[in-house]
Structures are given as C-alpha cells and as structure tokens.
Lab assay of single mutants.
Amino acid sequence: IDAAQIVDEALEQGITLFVVNNRLQYETSRDSIPTELLNKWKQHKQELIDFLNQLD
C-alpha cells in the first residue's frame, strides 16, 4: 500500500488529507473516522506527509 492509495481511500470516504507545518491534518463532514483508516494514517504518517508535500 502506498501514500497515494491511502489518500484516495480517504477521499472516497469524504475525507481530505493535507499537511500543515509538516503535520498530517484532515477535513471531513463525517462524524468519525474509521479506525482502520486512522491506523493506516499512523502507520504511514511520514510517507503521507512526504507525498502530500510533493503535491503542493
């Protein structure tokens, strides 16, 4: 699994991931984030931050 897949998966569930001051953040209108997704974010945090920083 790679960062792009995780970002896409989040988007499919209505969650936008982004980076502020090198910290992973998210925006969503959902009430809660699925635990499975949160765990993936934690496991791949640095990859996600690097990936999202490249997009900007």
Rank of each mutant, 00 (worst) to 15 (best):
N21C: 07
R23K: 15
D2C: 12
L37Y: 06
H44E: 01
D8L: 15
A3C: 09
Q25F: 15
A4C: 06
P34C: 03
D50A: 13
E9D: 06
L11R: 15
N53G: 09
L24Y: 02
A4W: 11
R23N: 15
Q46P: 05
N39E: 15
A10S: 05
E36M: 08
L11D: 04
L55M: 13
N22V: 03
L11P: 02
D50W: 09
A10M: 03
D8Q: 15
D56S: 14
H44S: 05
I6F: 06
L11S: 09
Q43Y: 08
S29F: 09
E47M: 12
T16Y: 14
A3I: 14
D2W: 09
I15Y: 08
D50T: 10
A3F: 09
I6W: 07
D2Y: 12
S32L: 08
I1D: 07
D31S: 07
Q25T: 09
E47H: 08
N39Y: 09
L52F: 08
V19W: 02
I33A: 04
F51Y: 14
L38H: 05
G14A: 04
S32D: 10
Q25H: 15
A3D: 01
S32H: 12
N39D: 15
L11E: 08
Q5K: 13
A10C: 04
A4F: 06
L37H: 02
F18A: 07
N21V: 04
K45I: 14
Q43V: 10
S32W: 11
N22E: 07
K42L: 14
K42S: 14
F51E: 01
E36Q: 09
L24W: 01
T28Y: 05
D56H: 14
I49D: 00
D8V: 14
R23H: 14
K42E: 15
L52A: 00
T35S: 12
L52N: 00
D8E: 14
D56L: 10
S29Y: 10
R23L: 14
Q13R: 07
L24A: 00
R30M: 07
E47Y: 07
K45T: 14
S32I: 10
Y26N: 02
L11N: 09
E9F: 05
E27H: 14
I15M: 03
L24N: 00
R30Y: 06
I49T: 04
L48W: 01
V20L: 11
I49C: 04
L37E: 03
V20R: 12
I15L: 02
D2T: 15
V7R: 04
V20W: 10
L24C: 03
P34M: 03
W41G: 01
Q13M: 14
A4Q: 14
L52H: 01
A4D: 03
Q5M: 12
R23V: 15
S29H: 09
D8C: 10
H44M: 07
A4P: 05
E12S: 14
I1F: 13
T35C: 08
L48E: 00
F18R: 13
N22S: 06
W41V: 12
